[in-house]
């Protein structure tokens, strides 16, 4: 474990906590894409299949359970909670997320490290996570005013994978030049997708104005 990865995990955890707090405190999920949240549940389920078969550390197991639990509860709130589900922007959150999942799965069948169920599904989760934010970014462009919590949520979500990129650079130089193209390239794509959001988020923060994404 290095400081970059720990910072990344904490940033990721914080983003999810902020989203849960927003939903529980305001009893509203306005501006949040259910499609993206569902994709994250799939990402965690397919990535943590070895949760009960491989014990790495207390930290690793705990964080996996926290990520699975929180992401599933967010989807539950948005789908079934009587008050929250009324605030879901159903008619604006129209991104066909299956168009994202299916190519990722096909790509995982083609490009992986070894052809086993666990490894192919793990690879699928890496590819899927890279594009899972797209429905959320599209929804942000459609919703006129973005509330601060939602903006902070998306910013921290993008920042966590950027910190993971730094972690991979650090590990490359400190762990006999271990090369891991699949997470590296996917992480690069994932972080790049946030580029224009980062630009507008930082601009709105500097000029102390409301966050607005150009349509």
């Amino acid at each position: 474990m290095n400081v970059f990865r720990l910072a990344g995990d904490m940033t990721h955890l914080l983003s999810i906590i902020i989203l849960l707090l927003k939903i529980r405190a305001t009893k509203s999920c306005t501006g949040i894409s259910l499609k993206t949240q569902e994709l994250y549940v799939i990402v965690f389920l397919t990535r943590y299949l070895d949760l009960f078969t491989k014990y790495i550390s207390f930290y690793n197991t705990t964080m996996k359970l926290v990520f699975l639990g929180t992401s599933i509860s967010i989807v539950w709130y948005m789908r079934y909670h009587k008050v929250v589900k009324q605030t879901y922007n159903k008619d604006q959150d129209t991104f066909r997320h299956y168009f994202l999942a299916i190519p990722c799965f096909l790509l995982a069948l083609l490009i992986h490290h070894e052809f086993t169920v666990i490894e192919v599904l793990w690879t699928f989760s890496i590819y899927l996570e890279a594009v899972a934010i797209l429905p959320q970014l599209v929804l942000l462009q459609r919703s006129r005013n973005i509330d601060n919590l939602t903006g902070n949520y998306v910013f921290l979500l993008g920042a966590y994978r950027a910190l993971y990129l730094v972690n991979w650079v650090y590990r490359y130089f400190t762990e006999n030049h271990l090369v891991r193209w699949i997470p590296w390239l996917s992480g690069l794509v994932q972080t790049t997708l946030y580029a224009d959001f980062f630009y507008y988020y930082i601009k709105s923060w500097k000029n102390n104005e409301k966050l607005q994404l150009p349509a």
């Binding site: 995990d9 491989k54 964080m63 490290h113 793990w122 271990l178 891991r180 997470p183």
Partner: peptide
């Protein structure tokens, strides 16, 4: 062994 190193990440 290469891939195992990755699996210690979240």
């Amino acid at each position: 062994v290469q891939q195992d190193a990755v699996k210690d990440e979240l």
